[in-house]
Design a protein around this nucleic acid. Structure first.
Length: 251
DNA sequence: AAATACCACAACCGCCAGTAG
DNA sequence: CCTACTGGCGGTTGTGGTATT
């Protein structure tokens, strides 16, 4: 028994979102909150399927999103988390407030993976490439299973990041700030915490620092500007989105 | 200046898990 | 208990922008 498609493709617009569509979606969600996504397009007057609306909101329009490049500290954390969690991008994203799984996934595929390969590290197993080659000739090629193994057998903090790499020029080496052990404790804590609301102080290259943030998108003032461009009251936006984000489990 | 190659990221697709009826 | 439905996740693709030749 086949499942119904999430939306019939007839009369449903696809492709890049226009500012007008964004405006409609934002204003609808800020007014009504997130209800069932299937109903959103109809109620908001959009010719999109609910799934598309949800994706657009989650990955791009959410007011608590941080925009811009990932900091070196965030990148480092992603690598550590990936070593433990594998391709569970949503879990990783949950530890990086203001970042989406899609964003992290893209960044991993376009930047970090290449970087690791360049450094001689297998991005799938986080082991030196020479070792992985030998291992993969024998068996498992699945990165997921490999990561599962890592998870269970606990090869944590085994991210042998070469310290002499010139790649580090793009950012600070966090290991200069915290020992591997500290790093590991941090990751363990992050893995346990549900919503740590980390705030990676951008521009501070001393590594990651954790401060409580009254508003998760404190630094992302571009967002407010964007909303203002839509002719929306930013204070209203903050109030609404605060309410909604505290409602939603992982909005 | 034009053509081509490469890169980054937004968006889509298909599958899965949870759950209401 | 079974079925259908929804939301969410991860993989993949398409497209616009930038760099290189």
């Amino acid at each position: 028994m086949g499942r119904k498609p999430c939306c019939d493709k007839q009369g449903v617009k696809r492709g890049p979102w226009t500012a007008e569509e964004d405006k409609k979606l934002i204003s609808f969600i800020l007014t009504h909150g997130r209800c069932c996504w299937r109903a959103v397009p109809k109620l908001a007057g959009l010719l999109r399927c609910g799934k598309s609306c949800r994706l657009r909101w989650t990955n791009y329009l959410r007011p608590d999103l941080k925009r811009g490049l990932l900091t070196a500290a965030e990148e480092e954390l992603i690598i550590d988390l990936h070593a433990k969690l594998g391709n569970r991008w949503s879990k990783i994203a949950a530890k990086l407030p203001g970042r989406t799984d899609n964003e992290i996934k893209n960044h991993w595929n376009t930047h970090i993976r290449k970087k690791l390969v360049k450094m001689g590290i297998d991005p799938a197993t986080h082991q030196p490439l020479a070792n992985t080659k030998a291992a993969t000739t024998g068996s498992a090629k699945s990165s997921d299973t490999g990561d599962e193994q890592n998870l269970k057998e606990g090869s944590p903090g085994d991210m042998a990041m070469p310290t002499d790499s010139s790649e580090q020029s793009s950012g600070p080496d966090p290991s200069t700030n915290a020992s591997d052990q500290d790093q590991d404790l941090l990751v363990n804590w992050l893995l346990e915490a549900e919503e740590p609301w980390l705030n990676f102080t951008s521009g501070n290259d001393d590594g990651l620092s954790i401060v409580s943030a009254p508003l998760p998108w404190d630094d992302a003032t571009d967002w407010l500007l964007d909303y203002q461009d839509f002719g929306m009251d930013s204070s209203n936006l903050i109030n609404n989105s605060t309410v909604h984000s505290s409602n939603g489990s992982n909005l």
